[in-house]
């Protein structure tokens, strides 16, 4: 079976661990418990008739991405960069961070994600998305599970 390494990264508190837990275990908790370092888990998916094992790395959010040890990124095929739609500061850094990541892992496919959709009304969401300079690939809610599976499926499709 083919396996692919996917990293979840982005500023602290944006919901990386929540997306990870929703995808792997279909669980969500309201409680914020910060992650240190890395936790890796895997899930097998069937993409376009092919079995694929996704090895997902939940990486601690750092204020500056260059503080994250580069060893975590080695060999990654996919990057999910998460922003918190309710905290503009978390999208301010996205441009710089994703540039850095693309440079560090040239071949990797990147998905830019706006999370915590459930906290915004439709008009707030529209206004927020308009404020983000980069094109967002996916708008998710780790809480309700909305678009989480779709996010990983579409990334997996890009990888095979």
């Amino acid at each position: 079976m083919i396996s692919k390494k996917i990293i979840l990264t982005g500023s602290f508190g944006v919901g990386k661990t929540s997306i990870f837990n929703q995808f792997i275990f279909q669980k969500f908790s309201d409680k914020y418990l910060t992650t240190i370092g890395v936790k890796v888990n895997k899930k097998t998916m069937n993409v376009k008739g092919q079995e694929l094992s996704l090895l997902v790395w939940d990486i601690a959010g750092e204020v500056t991405q260059d503080k994250v040890p580069t060893s975590y990124f080695l060999g990654a095929s996919g990057i999910i960069y998460v922003m918190d739609l309710s905290r503009p500061l978390t999208f301010d850094k996205a441009e710089e961070d994703t540039k850095y990541l693309k440079n560090l892992i040239p071949g990797a496919k990147l998905k830019l994600v706006g999370n915590k959709k459930d906290l915004l009304t439709e008009s707030e969401l529209a206004e927020t998305v308009a404020n983000i300079k980069l094109p967002i690939d996916s708008i998710t809610s780790a809480k309700t599970g909305e678009n989480i599976l779709e996010l990983f499926t579409s990334l997996a499709e890009d990888l095979i």
Binding site: S3, K5, I36, G37, V38, K39, V40, N41, K42, L55, W57, A60, P69, S71, Y72, L74, G75
Partner: peptide, 27 residues
């Protein structure tokens, strides 16, 4: 160990002789 499943090849093929991974949690 998922971490090793993911990374062992990379470690073997890396040009660095020594690689460190800090603050690791496993399943």
């Amino acid at each position: 160990i998922c971490f090793l499943e993911s990374e062992f090849e990379v470690i073997l093929n890396s040009s660095a002789r020594k690689i460190t991974f800090e603050k690791m949690q496993t399943e």
